[in-house]
Amino acid sequence: MYGDKIAELRQARSLTQYQFAPKVGIKRAALSHYENNRREPDYKTLIRIADFFKVTVDYIIR
């Protein structure tokens, strides 16, 4: 799921949730919800995450 991809990308760069969340303009709690597949990020947030990691939105959601 998309949350697994986000967590994988974040961990591959040795970033904590506390370090990564502000870089894409979200709160750490929201990131936790995304990574645990409890909530879905909106499209603008998905774009910011994809841009940060230099991947496509498709890569994250598939």
Rank of each mutant, 00 (worst) to 15 (best):
K44M: 10
F53H: 10
R10V: 01
F53A: 07
R62T: 07
D42F: 08
I49V: 07
L15I: 02
K5Y: 06
I60Q: 06
L31N: 03
V55G: 12
D42Y: 12
R38D: 14
R13G: 05
R62L: 10
Y59C: 03
I26G: 05
Y59M: 08
T16M: 12
Q11Y: 10
A7L: 07
H33V: 05
P41R: 04
Y2L: 08
A29K: 13
I26W: 13
H33W: 11
V24K: 06
Q17Y: 09
E8S: 08
M1R: 10
A7P: 03
H33Y: 14
A30L: 09
D58V: 00
D58M: 08
G3D: 07
K5V: 06
R28I: 01
K5N: 09
I26V: 12
R48V: 00
G3T: 01
K54D: 14
T45S: 11
T45N: 10
Y2R: 08
R62C: 08
S32D: 11
V24I: 10
R48C: 02
D4N: 13
D4V: 05
Y34V: 02
I61S: 05
N36C: 03
M1A: 10
K5S: 04
T45C: 10
I60M: 05
K54Q: 14
A29R: 13
I47Q: 15
Y59H: 13
Y18D: 14
G3N: 04
K54V: 02
K5C: 03
Q11S: 09
G3L: 01
R13M: 11
R10F: 04
F20L: 08
Y2K: 07
H33T: 05
I6A: 02
L31G: 00
L15G: 00
L9W: 02
T56E: 13
A29D: 13
I6N: 00
R38V: 00
I47E: 13
K54R: 13
K44E: 13
A12N: 15
D42W: 09
F52V: 00
R10A: 04
R28G: 05
M1I: 03
D42T: 04
L15S: 03
V57W: 10
T16V: 02
I61K: 11
L9R: 02
T45Q: 11
D42P: 03
G25E: 08
T45I: 06
K23I: 01
A7Y: 11
L15M: 15
A7T: 00
N37Y: 10
S14Y: 14
Y34K: 03
V55L: 13
R13E: 15
L31Y: 02
K5D: 05
E35S: 01
L31F: 06
Q17H: 08
V55P: 05
Y2P: 01
I49R: 02
A30N: 09
I61A: 06
S14H: 15
F53T: 05
V57K: 09
K44W: 09
R10C: 02
P22K: 11
Y18K: 15
I26S: 07
L31A: 05
F52C: 00
Q17S: 06
D42M: 06
E8W: 10
P41N: 09
T16Y: 13
R13Q: 15
I61L: 10
F52D: 02
I60S: 04
Q19F: 09
E40I: 04
K27S: 15
Q19A: 11
M1G: 07
